[in-house]
Structure formats: C-alpha cells, structure tokens
Design a protein around this nucleic acid. Structure first.
Lengths: 190, 190
DNA sequence: TCCATATTGGAGTATACGCTACAGTTCTGG
DNA sequence: CCAGAACTGTAGCGTATACTCCAATATGGA
C-alpha cells in the first residue's frame, strides 16, 4: 500500500495538529474531531492513514523523546550527565508532551498489557544506556552493579519528573543533580 | 442530613463492592453499573450516599494507604526503614489498589488541578515524615538537608514502584533497600 | 491516455457511561 | 404512632466518543 505524495503530506498535517493539540490542551483535548478539524481533514482520511487515534499520539510522543536524545546515532559518546540532562530537559521543557508520556505509560500501561510491554522495553533500553555511560565513567564497576545503579537512578528521575509535572514550583534539575555519582561541592553520602 | 442506619450499611456495602471491583478488574472495571450490581443497590441509592463515582474510589484508595501506615497515630516512632517498608508493601502487596492510586495521581493529577493539589499535599506530608525519621536517625542533619534527601528518596521509591507495577518480575524491595543510608553488609532474606 | 490504486469528506453508527427524576417505601425521634 | 426526613429502585436522559462506510475524486506509473 505505497502512499501517494498527498497522503504523506496529509499525514504530516495530522501529526502537526495532534502535536499542537497535545501541547495546548493535554491529552483530554485530543479528540478525533479536534484533530481532523485542526488538520482540515475528514475522519475517513484520518483512518486511511492511521489505524487508530492512539497511533498518532504515540508517534508524536516518540518524536518528542527522540528530539532531546543527546546521542541519536547511538555512537556511545554520551555521558551520564548528558543523559540526566536530556531526561530533565524532556520533563521540563517539553512538559506538555512529557505529561502525555507519563499519562500513557502509567494510565494505560498499568491496564493494557501491550502498552506495558512497550513501556518496559523502552525503559530497559534507557537503563542500558545509563548503565553503559556509568561504566564508561567508572570502569571499576561490574556490568551488574552498573545496571542496578542505573535502574535506581532512572526510577529517581522518573519520580522527580512526576513531582515536577504535578508541582511546577518543584525544581527538578536541582534535585536531579544530586543523583550524579560525583557532585563537585557538597558531597552527598550514598 | 443525618444518616439512618440502613444508609450507613448501604454505604459500607458500596465501598466493599468498589474495593472488590477495583482489586479484580482495575479502574476500568469500575463502572457505576458494576458497583451497583455488585452491591445490590440502585443507582439512585448510590447517589443518595455519594456525590460521584470518584468519591467512592478515593475513599477505597485512602483506606488502603492508611492500612499500611507503620505509625497511624502519628507518635513519631517510625524509622526510615519502617517507612520504606510500608511504601514497598503498599506497592507490592496491595498492588491492585496501588495501581489505582498511581493511575489517579498521574492520570488525573496531571490534568485536574484539584486532584493535583490533593496529591501534592499528601506527598508533602509523606516527605515530612521521611525527613523527620531521617533526622531522628542522623541528628547531625539540618532540616533542609533532611527534606532534600527525603524528597529524592521518595521520588526514587515512586519510580521503583512504577517499575514494579509495570513489570512484575521487578524486585522492588531489593532495589529499595539500597536507598537506605546505611546498608548493613548485604544480608539476604527477610 | 488509461486505470488500478490511493485519497477524501463527512454523515452516520454503535455504544458506553455517569448521572438524574421521581414516585414509592422505610426509618426513627419524640 | 406519626410526620418528616432519609432511603430505594427503575427507567431513561444527555452526551461524548472512536470509528466505519462509501461514493466521488485525485494520483501517477506504464
């Protein structure tokens, strides 16, 4: 089912509309009606290009996550600080989309097996990247230990991100800094 | 509008039904129809006793959280380990209800101001309890530092809990132990 | 040019759900 | 025992939603 050019363009238009609605009105504002109105497209056209509304939403969220990746090529050159920074940036700068991400991961992931697996997989990939970076910085670490630490660190980041999204006065970057192994000043115990 | 005895009993019946449905079918299974059928009650009776479906759900979740509180009297005798343990127990043992809690906190909290404030408040209370316990165990800590640590610790616990709920193979208790300040030489088993 | 295939719009479908109106029944304090 | 308040069940209202159907039209490779 090769696409014609117009179809591809319409697809882009739909994704833009979805992204915009997601950013401005949260996940609640994204109804099929809203998307098709915003994109100037009929419902039939939408379903000619997407299998479901969720597919469009996922696509947008995926794009937002990729946009802050410090090493999109997978060259293995990212540091722990880079990765933490990327996570914090995603949570604070693209906060409307980060909200959606958490709402999907938690709200739907805890209910829907398929989504849960999707979330777990992407989470594990992230854990691996954190663990790799950690080992690159502290070569004395065993892989198992690095993974364990990465897991706890990502959990903490997720929790901090949640706090930040719920309470905008919460300074996520400040707290996230403490998670890094060697803090320049104020040595935090571990 | 003082309640009659029958009304109070009906209320209990509705809460039991809600709790049961919540545990067995998750938040999706809890429709008004399901509740009223399970409780042998008409919709009219339900709304005579509750303002909304949510009220009943909140009530059930609140009860489940209180049930694992290591110091329900607020005597100030709970240790950090107690608090962590209670959190882990809530997440793992009452996992269906913990799921609901997170779904409400995240799914609705990120959308609905009222719910967000509710969640933030209860979160702050928990942070304070963790910080107090931490100070009791390490009297050299300043209140600000204790709070900061408590915040990060709770964030990590929340994140770990999320992992545990998404992936049942994830051993939350194991990871949570690492968060405590002084690990007494990795003693396995409990 | 031809024509198989892709695209389009939007009215219409199916359905689910929270909640209410209301008339009849039960409760309970005095 | 009785008056007024609380309680009860049923029927159905109102609304919102994702998605389908299909006839008409556009596209672009041969």
């Amino acid at each position: 089912m090769a696409r014609y050019r117009v179809g591809i363009e319409t697809r882009e238009r739909i994704l833009s509309a979805t992204r915009r609605l997601l950013s401005e009105g949260g996940i609640e504002g994204v109804t099929l009606k809203a998307i098709t109105a915003q994109a100037n497209v009929g419902a039939g056209s939408f379903y000619n290009l997407f299998d479901s509304k969720e597919e469009a939403v996922f696509e947008v969220v995926r794009g937002a996550i990729e946009a802050v990746d410090p090493d999109p090529e997978g060259a293995g050159t990212d540091t722990l600080a880079d990765l933490v920074d990327a996570f914090v940036t995603f949570m604070t700068d693209s906060s409307p989309i980060a909200r959606i991400y958490l709402q999907l991961a938690v709200g739907r992931g805890l209910t829907d097996r398929t989504i849960a697996e999707r979330v777990i997989r992407s989470h594990q990939r992230r854990v691996e990247r954190f663990a790799d970076a950690w080992q690159r910085e502290d070569t004395s670490l065993t892989p198992a230990e690095a993974t364990r630490r990465a897991q706890v660190m990502l959990a903490a980041l997720t929790g901090l991100g949640l706090s930040a999204l719920l309470d905008e006065r919460f300074d996520m970057r400040e707290h996230a800094r403490e998670l890094l192994p060697d803090v320049p000043a104020a040595s935090t115990g571990r």
